[in-house]
């Protein structure tokens, strides 16, 4: 279902039959409306990012990217993603194993709770860590005694990033592992494999595409998060600025070309993510069951 090829042949099937074929005028109207809306709301903003970034030429573009504050923002963004993604990966695999392979009471509740961060406003995601670790928060005074700073420092940014990307990998793996069942793992155990051997040699190869899919979406959000990180960052240039925050600062200082230059890197990351996502959907679709790879909306 996710494969574009099957969608193409399906649409030809629909268009070849009189009962499912729309009137030529209706077809033209819907195509114009749909593609016009698509061009105006999705393509134009993307084009604008690159056009504005290069408006003052390649030299200005390059200068905006290699400037020390920009480089430190890039480093911090990479660092936050490098911590948040692996942690959420371990969590995602662990949660999917527990939920997909066993039956227990409260399973539906647990699945809902894992999705919770998607329904919380990013601003609130930042606020909660201020309430826990901030100067007036639960552990603020205690941490202050040991001279540990979490809010307005790198650990806060990492925590906020972990929160907003929390469900990505788990919600990708749970339906996939549920659809696959446990027969292969049981067979491996019967043949004498240990639990870890079963996981590494049987489960992991089966879920690798779903896992990769979750990881790239998790990574895109981790590198692009703005609201939650903005609340806990304190916006200290060169220290607690991530790339999206650096874009904001440049923009508010009317350095538009520089702001769009940094933004264009994030837009390239988004395009790379979408390309990889399409490749994975195409790779995964012929092997696995159609139900195992639903094109689910991901916030």
């Amino acid at each position: 279902m996710a494969g574009a090829t099957s969608a193409l042949s399906a649409s030809q099937h629909f268009e070849s039959r009189s009962a499912t074929r729309d009137h030529g005028l209706v077809r033209a109207l819907l195509l114009i409306l749909g593609l016009g809306f698509f061009a105006l709301f999705l393509v134009l903003p993307l084009v604008v990012v690159f056009a504005e970034a290069l408006r003052k030429g390649w030299d200005t573009y390059w200068a905006a990217l290699v400037e020390p504050d920009a480089l430190s923002a890039i480093r911090l963004t990479l660092l936050a993603a490098a911590i948040a993604v692996p942690l959420n990966l371990v969590f995602g695999v662990s949660a999917a194993w527990a939920i997909a392979k066993y039956r227990f009471r409260g399973k539906a509740l647990l699945t809902t709770l894992i999705d919770l961060p998607f329904s919380v406003s990013p601003v609130i995601a930042g606020l909660i860590y201020v309430l826990v670790f901030g100067a007036q928060g639960w552990f603020g005074p205690l941490l202050d005694g040991y001279d540990i700073r979490i809010i307005f420092a790198v650990p806060g940014i990492v925590l906020a990033t972990i929160f907003v990307t929390f469900p990505f990998i788990a919600r990708e793996l749970i339906p996939l592992m549920e659809a696959q069942g446990s027969e292969e793992e049981e067979a491996a155990l019967v043949l004498g494999a240990s639990g870890w051997q079963t996981f590494w040699r049987v489960t992991l190869p089966n879920i690798k595409w779903g896992l990769l899919y979750g990881v790239i979406l998790c990574n895109a959000r981790a590198m692009g998060e703005f609201g939650a990180v903005s609340v806990v960052s304190g916006h200290i240039r060169g220290l607690t600025n991530t790339m999206p925050l650096h874009v904001e600062i440049l923009y508010n200082e009317y350095q538009f070309a520089a702001a769009f230059a940094v933004a264009s890197l994030l837009a390239l990351l988004a395009l790379f993510t979408l390309a990889l996502k399409s490749v994975i959907e195409w790779r995964a679709s012929p092997k696995s069951e159609p139900e195992a790879r639903p094109k689910e909306p991901l916030p």
């Binding site: 574009a4 969608a7 593609l35 698509f38 999705l42 393509v43 903003p45 993307l46 604008v48 990012v49 504005e52 979406l217 895109a220 590198m223 692009g224 998060e225 703005f226 609201g227 790339m243 999206p244 925050l245 874009v247 904001e248 923009y251 702001a259 769009f260 933004a263 994030l266 837009a267 990351l269 988004a270 395009l271 993510t273 979408l274 390309a275 996502k277 399409s278 909306p297 991901l298 916030p299």
Partner: peptide, 20 residues
Amino acid sequence: VDALVDLPFALPTAVAGIAL
């Protein structure tokens, strides 16, 4: 078109904001 429909999921919100 099918691949780009997901752009708002992948494009950081700050980038979308300044572009709009």
